[in-house]
Amino acid sequence: MFNLSQKGKTRSILLNEASPLRRLDPRSKLFVSIALSLAVMLPLDKLIIFIGVYIIFIAWARLLLEMARQTWRLRWILLFLFVIDWWLVSFELAAVITLRLILLSGVFALFFSTTSTNELSMALESLRIPYRFAFSINLAFQSIGLLQEEWQAIREAQQSRGILVKFDGIRQLIKQVNDLIALTVPAIVLATRRAWAITEAAYSRGFDSPQRVSYYQLQMNWIDWLFIGLILAIMLTFIFWR
């Protein structure tokens, strides 16, 4: 699982064990994801071809479904930005911005559908990011599902007291400020308590130890270097091709 989904209630990105990228070193995937993200700088004509190539690559990696899901989750933001940019500037700019966001969401799906939070943490550590930061990033990703569940529990509990926040326009929302506070204050309190409980739990198991040894070890293989080389070649072709 990508995040700590309690009793399977929350929506989360599942690790795709069938993808060939799952077996790669997380560092190579991190590098490739960053490289692929640079494609957002391409002009519209090149960007369209690049996204075409990217979709073929994603289909080969058996991640098409994950990419589609990720894009679907962003559908309202994409639509909003497209309409605003078209209205205020031009159709071309609206198309470029929307395609860039689709590409970035695809890269996000590629990385997180094939990399666990532990692997991400180890990759960051091996890239000389201090352990406490790598561990915090790991925990933050794990906590997404729990925060969603806590929010749901608060909403239900307050709803049972007659506190029902409906998002029917800004004016309506302003009238419901008190009710919004009824949701946000407990959410902040619970998140703070969880953070504090985790801090206590971590320190009571030697989190600040200077002699820490990582049990798992990462190993770059020839296939990782081949993968990096291939993606780099494609990227350079697109950047310098006229």
């Binding site: 699982m1 985790i198 009571s204």
Partner: peptide, 13 residues
């Protein structure tokens, strides 16, 4: 040290 609520001391996936 073992805390009251075990769910709050779980740190790993």
């Amino acid at each position: 040290l073992v805390f009251q609520n075990p769910a709050h001391q779980m740190l790993a996936p």
